[in-house]
Design a protein around this nucleic acid. Structure first.
Length: 385
DNA sequence: CAGCGCGTAGCGACTAATTT
DNA sequence: AAATTAGTCGCTACGCGCTG
C-alpha cells in the first residue's frame, strides 16, 4: 500500500503522530517515522520551517537553544539594556547557558565581552590575576609610603595579597624576582633577645616612664611575650633590672579614678580657654566624645597616659566623625605613630596659654594630680612654668 | 549604661621546621 | 609534595571593678 504524499497527507500524518503523544524532536521523528520526516523535508524545505509554520517554537521542540555569535551578542546586549548584570559571576547564576555558549562560541569570556563592546575587567565581576597584573599592582603598593607591612598591604588590597601568595608563594619570592628589598614591605621579623628587653626596660626607667605592662607595651608591644620567653614572666624580667613588679603594677581603681579626675579638670580648663568646645558632646550616635569643636570638626579626648589611646578603640570609633582627633594626656612619653588625623598633646602644652590667660591655678591643679601618679614625678621646669 | 585603665588571652599574618 | 606544627611578631577584644 503506497501512500500518496501530498501536503495534506503530511499534515495529517504529523497530527496523528503528535496525538499519539510521541515526542516531535527531530531525533525521535527520525527514529519512529523517518518516512514522514523525509516527506516533510521534501514538501516544506526543512523540519524547522515546517514546525514553525505550525506555530511551534523550534527550540522548544528540539529542547535546546540554537546559539550563534550574533544571537549571543544580542542576548548579552539585551540583558544590559534590561538593566540586568552582565558580570560573569552573575551570569553564571542567572543564565549559565548563555555564558557557556558565549565562552564556547567566542573562545573565552574575554573575547565575548569584547565582541559585545563591553569592558572585560568590569564585567568579569572579579579581578583576574596573572603575573603581570600582580606585579603591576604590587609595584604600586611597594611605592606607597603608607604601606610598610604586609598587613597594611592586605588592608589596602586584599585580593593582591591573596594573588601574591597564589602566584609567587611568598613575599620573599616576588621581591627577589623584581630585585626589590622585601623588608620595605615586610619588616624583618626580629627575635628580641633578653638583652634587648632589659635595655628597653632600663631606658624606660631612665626616662621616668612607669614600668607597668601597658606603659612598656606602648614602646615595646611584645615586651610581655619576650619577657615570658626569656625570664618566665614579666615580673621576673623586671627583677633582672632590680625592680619589683608589685611596686610598678598600677592600681586599676586608683588610675581609673584619676583618669576621670583629669578629664573633669581638662573640662574646666577648656571652658576657660576653649569655650567653643562642647564637653561630653552627644550629637553623634554611639559615641560621646570628651570634647567636640563643631566649627573645626575636632574631637578632643582626655587620657591619663599617652599610651592608653593605643590600647583602646577610641581612634577607630572617633576618627570617622572628625577631621582631627586630639588626645590630651597627663603623663607618658611622646609616642610616635603613623595614624592619620591623630594628634597626641601633653596637657603641659596648654600651660603657657593658661598662665597667660591668668589661670595659673589650673596649671597647679594639673601638676598636683600629676605628682600623685606613681613613678611619674613632675619635672621641675613644668612646675615652674 | 558608656566609659575608664590595666592586664591578658587569643587572633591573624607570616615563615620554617617537621611530619605524613 | 602537601599538610601540620611551632613559634615569631603586632594587634586588639575582653573582663574586671569601678565612676559619672
Amino acid at each position: 500500500m503506497k501512500k500518496r504524499w501530498d501536503a495534506q497527507m503530511v499534515l495529517r500524518e504529523f497530527s496523528l503522530f503528535v496525538l499519539s503523544g510521541e515526542s516531535i524532536t527531530p531525533k525521535n521523528m527520525k527514529a519512529k517515522r523517518n518516512d514522514l520526516l523525509v516527506q516533510i523535508r521534501r514538501k516544506f524545505g526543512s523540519y524547522q520551517s515546517f514546525v514553525e509554520r505550525l506555530g511551534y517554537d523550534y527550540e522548544e521542540v528540539i529542547g535546546f537553544t540554537v546559539w550563534s555569535k550574533d544571537r549571543i551578542a544580542m542576548e548579552i546586549q539585551a540583558r544590559q539594556e534590561e538593566g540586568k548584570s552582565v558580570k560573569r559571576a552573575d551570569m553564571e547564576k542567572e543564565c549559565p547557558a548563555l555564558l557557556s555558549a558565549a565562552i564556547k562560541y567566542f573562545g573565552s569570556f574575554k573575547a565575548a565581552t569584547e565582541a559585545c563592546g563591553l569592558p572585560y575587567e568590569e564585567n568579569l565581576g572579579f579581578t583576574w590575576w596573572d603575573r603581570g597584573k600582580v606585579i603591576r599592582e604590587f609595584l604600586q603598593m611597594y611605592g606607597d609610603e603608607s604601606v610598610t607591612t604586609v598587613s597594611q598591604l592586605r588592608d589596602k588590597n586584599r585580593g593582591l595579597d591573596h594573588a601574591i601568595r597564589k602566584i609567587f608563594g611568598t613575599y620573599d619570592a616576588i621581591c627577589e624576582e623584581l630585585g626589590l628589598d622585601v623588608t620595605k614591605i615586610r619588616p624583618e621579623v626580629y627575635e628580641w633577645s633578653a638583652e634587648d628587653l632589659l635595655r628597653v626596660l632600663k631606658d624606660c626607667r631612665s626616662k621616668g616612664m612607669p614600668l607597668n605592662v601597658m606603659s612598656v607595651h606602648s614602646v615595646f608591644p611584645s615586651a610581655v611575650k619576650v619577657a615570658t620567653r626569656h625570664f618566665g614572666s614579666y615580673a621576673a624580667a623586671l627583677s633582672e633590672i632590680g625592680e619589683e613588679y608589685p611596686l610598678h603594677a598600677e592600681d586599676h581603681l586608683r588610675t581609673s579614678a584619676m583618669g576621670h579626675e583629669f578629664e573633669s579638670l581638662l573640662a574646666e580648663a577648656f571652658t576657660l580657654i576653649r569655650p567653643d568646645f562642647q564637653y561630653h558632646y552627644r550629637g553623634f550616635a554611639g559615641i560621646v566624645p570628651d570634647f567636640y569643636g563643631a566649627a573645626t570638626r575636632q574631637i578632643v579626648d582626655a587620657k591619663l597616659s599617652s599610651w592608653s589611646i593605643f590600647n583602646c578603640d577610641t581612634v577607630k570609633k572617633y576618627t570617622p566623625y572628625c577631621t582631627d582627633l586630639t588626645v590630651v594626656y597627663l603623663r607618658g612619653p611622646d609616642i610616635k605613630h603613623g595614624i592619620d588625623n591623630l594628634t597626641l598633646v601633653p596637657v603641659s602644652d596648654y600651660y603657657e596659654e593658661l598662665n597667660a590667660a591668668g589661670h595659673a591655678g589650673m596649671v597647679a591643679k594639673f601638676e598636683r594630680i600629676r605628682r600623685t601618679i606613681p613613678e611619674c614625678a613632675a619635672t621641675p621646669e613644668l612646675i615652674a612654668a
